[in-house]
Measured scan of single mutants.
Amino acid sequence: GKMTGIVKWFNADKGFGFITPDDGSKDVFVHFSAIQNDGYKSLDEGQKVSFTIESGAKGPAAGNVTSL
């Protein structure tokens, strides 16, 4: 299901970062391709987001990332 969290950091040049889930679980990798907006796909440190957990090739990653 949907989770919420805070963006820990995001490197716009490399197109990835990490989200710290509100439930205290392990930080989740986020790739820019998972960001659900029409414009420039980037996130800001400290931004609140909702997301799902998808299993990627390198382990769990955030999917369906939407800013709240």
Rank of each mutant, 00 (worst) to 15 (best):
D13F: 14
G59W: 05
S55R: 13
D22G: 05
G39E: 10
G63C: 14
A61N: 08
V49W: 00
K58T: 07
F16R: 04
A62Y: 02
K41D: 07
G5I: 00
F10K: 03
S55P: 11
E45G: 15
K26P: 12
K41P: 10
T4E: 07
K8I: 00
P21C: 05
F10E: 02
S50Q: 12
I53R: 11
S33M: 05
A61I: 13
M3F: 15
I6S: 12
V30K: 01
D38W: 09
F18S: 05
I6D: 05
F29T: 04
I6G: 03
G1L: 13
G56N: 13
P60G: 05
G63E: 10
S25G: 15
S25N: 07
K48N: 09
V65K: 00
I19V: 05
G39N: 13
I19P: 02
D22K: 05
V28P: 01
I6M: 10
I53H: 06
W9V: 07
F16A: 04
W9N: 07
A61T: 12
S42L: 11
E45W: 08
G39K: 09
L43M: 06
I19R: 00
K8E: 03
H31P: 05
A34P: 02
S42C: 14
P21G: 01
D22M: 06
A12D: 13
S42P: 08
G46R: 05
D44E: 13
S67Q: 14
Y40L: 12
A62R: 02
I6L: 08
Y40D: 08
T20L: 11
P21R: 02
F29M: 07
P60D: 07
V65R: 00
N37K: 15
K8F: 00
S25E: 10
K26I: 07
Y40C: 12
S50Y: 05
K26G: 12
H31E: 09
S42A: 12
A12S: 13
G5T: 01
V28C: 07
K58R: 12
M3S: 12
T52W: 07
G59D: 04
Y40V: 13
V28T: 04
G5F: 00
S25L: 06
P60V: 11
Q36D: 11
E45F: 09
Y40N: 15
N11Y: 04
G1F: 08
E45S: 15
V49L: 03
P21V: 03
